[in-house]
Computed example of a mutant assay.
Amino acid sequence: MAVPASMTTLNLSGKFSINKTLSHPPEEILELQGVAMLKRKAMGAATLTVNLKHYKNDSGKECLSLEQTIAGLDLGVPEEKVLDWVEQTRDTKLIGTVVTKAKRVKVDEVENAYLKEGWSADTLENGCIMVHVTPEGKDSWSAEQTWGIGEVKGERRHVRRIAFTGPDKKLEHQFVYDYLGEN
């Protein structure tokens, strides 16, 4: 389901579910991140739901809080992203400890051409959310991501585009989400 016409990257709050038909399958990226085959298959078969809260913290910094579940199973404590491009370390149940940083950026400032494609006019105007993720203490992979409202088959959707660099492979994937309503 498309996002409401009023939703922009200035407020991405809502409940979303990954649309498997419009998204790349996650298994290849998960394999390059070292996730075991049975977990990869389970992730590919399950439905991922994300509750996203977009807000300003007490310091006035823009933040995103994500709570992810798969078929009703909690994937851990909510993930807090402060959009200040300062590295944060967090433990994940699926891929171990990662270092992330995030910020709002104008699409034309993004270096990777794939991450610049397919955005709505309001995302081009307001900027997208850029996220960088690497495993802690290793340089085995990295993921550069842009999040925003994209135009997918004539509909406005929450989209995450990923340029993934693994040990011997580079991937470009897009995850498209159905809007399920307010959270």
Rank of each mutant, 00 (worst) to 15 (best):
Y55H: 12
K56D: 10
V35D: 05
Q33H: 01
P4A: 07
K53P: 00
K41L: 12
L48F: 08
T47R: 12
K15F: 00
L12G: 05
N11P: 06
V3K: 07
K39R: 05
H54V: 08
K20E: 01
V50Y: 01
M7G: 07
T47L: 09
S23K: 04
L30Y: 08
N19S: 09
S13H: 03
N11K: 05
N51L: 11
N51C: 10
T21E: 13
Y55M: 08
V50S: 10
A5M: 02
I29S: 15
L32H: 12
A36W: 09
V3Y: 04
N51F: 06
R40G: 06
M43Q: 08
I18C: 13
S13Q: 04
S23C: 04
L48R: 07
E31H: 10
V3I: 05
L22G: 05
T9M: 01
I29D: 14
T49C: 10
L52Q: 12
G44Y: 00
K53N: 13
A45E: 07
F16T: 04
G44S: 08
K41F: 03
K41W: 05
V3T: 07
S17Y: 01
L38C: 06
L22H: 06
I29F: 09
K15S: 14
I29L: 15
P25Y: 00
P26S: 13
L10A: 13
L38E: 00
G44L: 00
H54F: 03
T47Y: 03
A46G: 13
A42K: 02
G14V: 01
A46N: 08
K20A: 14
G14P: 02
K56G: 07
M7I: 06
G34T: 02
T21C: 05
I29E: 15
M37Y: 09
A42V: 10
K20M: 08
T47K: 14
N11E: 05
Q33Y: 02
T47S: 15
M43F: 12
V35F: 03
N51D: 15
V50E: 14
K41T: 14
L30N: 10
S23D: 01
H54Q: 04
L48C: 13
L10D: 14
M43E: 09
K56M: 11
N19P: 06
F16W: 12
T8Y: 04
A42T: 11
P4F: 03
K15H: 12
A42Q: 02
Q33S: 04
K53Y: 09
T47Q: 15
A42Y: 06
M43H: 07
F16I: 03
L10E: 13
M7K: 01
L10H: 08
A5K: 10
T49P: 10
S6R: 10
L12A: 06
L52C: 12
N51W: 09
H24Q: 11
L12C: 07
T47W: 03
K20Q: 12
A42F: 08
N19I: 07
